[in-house]
């Protein structure tokens, strides 16, 4: 069983929802990323989603786009993201980590080379925004060989038949995109999400996490009522960037992101009580 599946199994047993923070590797600066990952774990993260910076992040809203641009200005590459993962793993062998990014850097490194290097650094899963099921076979072959999960997106526009096509190739969990739009958009409709999750569960027993548009404890709690996990990205990227823009140092940025995640964790955990 993969570290991601094992983590969901443990959470289910404890009646706890997965909290999955997303940060851009190397943002606001490369030296911040590993300590920030540890802080996120201390603040209640169950799985960490690490964004791989790309020059053309088509699915991202302005907040995460700027995170990608800042990381690229620091010269962060796919290789340096793997180096960060290795450093993280020296102190944390348990928290599942997945990379979220775009096809080109992976393809440029070569799928087989990437997967072998990533497996050696302890990567658990991969979510590639622009590799839908139609284009996924080549990289899936490599991921399967390494026992790594491929996390797929399902969107509000995905019809039933496609859901089946996607879940048949997915492992670890399903990432449901809560709205039509880019990351960080502000028009989350929880009732609609609940309705769609019921559709997905008709086709798959995989856990379903929900992302896009979740920015605080209240929206996280509302989504956690119906989902197995909650992804929070833009809000964390934004709060850390704001601290730095206001003249704060790395420790202050890490504190700000950690505190926000902690508040969200508490919001989600209220459901059980």
């Amino acid at each position: 069983m993969s570290r991601i599946s094992e983590r969901f199994r443990q959470l289910t047993a404890r009646d706890r929802k997965a909290l999955i923070p997303y940060i851009v590797a190397g943002d606001p600066a490369p030296s911040v990323t590993v300590p920030l990952m540890h802080r996120l774990v201390e603040s209640g993260a169950d799985i960490i989603e690490l964004g791989v910076p790309f020059s053309d992040p088509m699915a991202e809203g302005p907040v995460i786009q700027q995170g990608h641009e800042r990381a690229l200005k620091h010269g962060v590459s796919l290789q340096s993201v793997l180096d960060m993962l290795r450093e993280f793993r020296q102190a944390d062998r348990d928290t599942p980590v997945l990379l979220m990014g775009y096809a080109n850097p992976l393809m440029h490194m070569g799928y087989a080379v990437f997967v072998e290097a990533a497996a050696a650094q302890g990567l658990d899963g991969l979510l590639t925004v622009d590799i839908p099921p139609e284009e996924v076979d080549d990289i899936n072959r490599e991921l399967k060989r390494a026992g790594m999960d491929n996390i797929f997106l399902i969107a509000p526009t995905t019809p039933g038949q496609r859901i089946e096509q996607i879940t048949g190739r997915a492992s670890g969990f399903i990432y449901y995109v809560s709205l039509k739009g880019v990351t960080g958009a502000g028009h989350l409709d929880t009732a609609q999400v609940a309705h769609r999750l019921a559709d997905i569960r008709r086709y798959s027993d995989l856990p379903v996490a929900v992302g896009f548009g979740i920015k605080d404890a209240a929206s996280a709690r509302a989504v956690a009522e119906v989902a197995d996990g909650v992804v929070v990205g833009s809000a964390l990227v934004s709060v850390a960037a704001q601290v730095v823009a206001d003249g704060g140092d790395a420790a202050a940025a890490i504190d700000a992101a950690g505190n926000l995640l902690l508040a969200i964790r508490q919001g989600i955990d209220c459901i059980a009580s």
Partner: peptide, 20 residues
């Protein structure tokens, strides 16, 4: 039928756009 010209082309987009 996959939109490929030899090894080029295809549909590398996010899931939200696939049905469109």
């Amino acid at each position: 039928e996959h939109g490929r010209f030899g090894g080029y082309g295809g549909k590398y987009v996010s899931e939200t756009l696939m049905s469109a």
